[in-house]
Simulated assay, not measured.
Amino acid sequence: MPYRHAWLFIIGLIAATVFAFWRSYFTVLATSPAGFHAHGLTASLWMLLLLAQSYTPHRGRMALHRLSGRAMFVVMPLFAAGSMGVLHSMAAGTGGGDPFYDLWGARLGYMDILAFAGVLYAAAMALRHRRNVRLHAGYMLSTALLLVSPVFGRVINQTVPGLIIAGPQDFPLFGWAAQLASACAALVALWLWQRDPRHGRPWAVALLVIVVQIIGFETVAAGTPWRAVFESLAVLPLLALMAFGLAAGAAAMVVGWTAVARRGGPRAAAA
């Protein structure tokens, strides 16, 4: 089975997420916007599903592996809904005077929207290639790589000298950390792609998304037109945006399942 030790990366990502958002989210749960809660809960469910999908086949727990695969039909639409929820909250903060989101909200929104699209595509392709072990596993794990930048950017801002954010006066440092985290994710995607070019399409797609994020973060996302578009999301009802995410996630699952690839590689015992 491919990526035998990938479950350790997922555990590390979960631990890094708790560390990264401990001060800004976990210690202020009572005052955090509803969109943040929706995203935090559903993203956690997706990472736990990835952990189960990565761990179980290497321990001979194929029944549990298939069960967790079928759970994608519930967890992915919920994750997509939660992603729209956090975008709504970030847009409200961007136009509502929050000093951090006033500076970085529109740019983070740009990155998150691309990640949203990339995760939905990868999840659909994981289902489509469920009969090809390497492609199926690659697409599933590539969704985690697209979540690296917002997590490790904040880890950098709490640990790396010269980039530590101690207060609002240091908020301009966040951009450097976000780009550094994205560059690291891009290098990992490139390495995994070159390591197995024949089955490297999942990592090539992830690399493309990350590169577009890196470039757009400094160009399109930094402009006034994009900021205006992003702030307009706050005007839309939260539940309407989340319903759109739920529908998009469900559609991705249906498309991936019904477009199953019938050729190429051994049959995967998944989803």
Rank of each mutant, 00 (worst) to 15 (best):
V18W: 07
S182N: 14
A144R: 00
A30T: 13
M84W: 15
S89D: 14
L108Q: 09
H5R: 11
Y55Q: 01
A106M: 06
A126V: 09
G82M: 05
V211E: 06
M47W: 05
P161N: 10
A15L: 15
Q169H: 13
W191Q: 05
T31K: 11
M72P: 01
F73T: 12
A6G: 04
T17N: 04
I14F: 01
V155W: 03
F171H: 12
L29D: 03
A34F: 14
S83G: 14
W226F: 13
M62E: 12
L192Y: 08
M125P: 01
T27F: 07
L78I: 05
N157L: 03
L187I: 10
G85P: 04
R227S: 08
D170C: 01
H88L: 09
L187R: 02
G264E: 10
G200W: 09
I113M: 15
L246A: 15
L145F: 05
N157W: 03
G223S: 15
R59A: 04
A247I: 15
M84T: 03
V133I: 15
E231G: 04
P57V: 00
F230W: 08
A270S: 13
D196E: 13
V160E: 07
A204I: 04
W257L: 09
H65E: 03
V151H: 00
G109H: 07
T56F: 14
G82N: 04
R262I: 01
E231Q: 15
G105K: 04
N157S: 15
P168A: 12
I214V: 13
P77R: 12
T27A: 11
M72K: 13
T94M: 13
I215G: 05
